[in-house]
Amino acid sequence: MLKIDQVGFHGYGYPLHYNFEAPSGSLTLISGPSGQGKTTLLSMIAGFINPQGGRIIFNNQVLNNIAINKRPISMLFQDHNLFPHLSVYYNAALGLTSSLKLTPLEKETLEHMASELGILQLLDKYPEELSGGQRQRVALARVLLRKRPLLLLDEPFVGLDQFHIRKALETIEKQREKYNLTILLVSHQYELIEKYADQIIVI
């Protein structure tokens, strides 16, 4: 279970306070107007911003003082998720190993994920050759390939049409069930995601 226990942040000149719980294997949709600290909350959980007070607990482990890359978290950003000089294949492969040398089994896993997200035919392309939606799907593939128990998705469906949003959500759902992933999803596409969410938090 993820527990956000009285977490606060004052870095923007006004106080932000968060206090909620997300059960293991649940999908929590975080919604609300822009500038209310949704991305800040994810950044604090991921470790990019230090909270000024409170505790972030996941599966009984306090995350506050754990190094960013050691946290059981995989995060998707709003933008610039992909490295422009790496092909789709290598961008996705970073989710498996940062050395970019994949074993045959890892290659198979990558191709399977690419197929599920509809990007198999794009593996040799570069990010600049993709549409916004295709780029987000590649980034999503990388995030899912990391197989961390806590997924933080910050506006993962920006630029995707309804068909691909549903497809991506189905893939996320499948992965969630398969690996019992706990997911925090920040999105403005409330109506489409609502039915997949176990709880909705409006900030």
């Binding site: 991921a46 990019f48 890359n69 950003f77 610039h80 490295f83 970073l94 940062s98």
Partner: peptide, 15 residues
Amino acid sequence: IPQEHWRTAKHLGFS
């Protein structure tokens, strides 16, 4: 270099 690239690098544990 976009901030997200720095973050991704740290997140993925780049050496």
